[in-house]
């Protein structure tokens, strides 16, 4: 189920065993096995599922790591863009999130 994404108690993840991907220039073609659908993703969207398949992250952790991975600044990739992209990927089933208990 899609969620808003802007929640520091949410951890995002992706399972690379659930999809096949092929890269053409700056486009990634991703076949998602559970839905049988094929998605065309730009470098950022694919970068998100790629990063999340290596490590589950909160939105803040992901924001930081994605800037580092693609040598971007926070201005290049505002958190709002990350949140909306995650929401789309969540709808497609390519990422999922779970809520973790905050430490007291």
């Amino acid at each position: 189920m899609a969620s808003s994404g802007d929640d520091s108690s949410q951890v995002w993840t992706s399972d690379s065993s659930q999809y096949l991907s092929v890269m053409y220039d700056d486009t990634h073609l991703v076949y998602f096995k559970p839905s049988g659908e094929t998605h065309f993703l730009n470098f950022l969207s694919f970068g998100l599922i790629d990063v999340l398949s290596e490590k589950s992250l909160t939105i803040d952790g992901l924001h930081e790591l994605i800037q580092d991975r693609f040598s971007l600044t926070a201005d290049d990739i505002p958190k709002s863009l990350l949140i909306s992209t995650l929401a789309e990927l969540d709808l497609a089933g390519l990422v999922s999130s779970k809520r973790v208990k905050e430490k007291l």
Partner: peptide
């Protein structure tokens, strides 16, 4: 066309 366009 690039390959992705052809596949699309």
């Amino acid at each position: 066309l690039n390959p992705a366009e052809a596949i699309m």
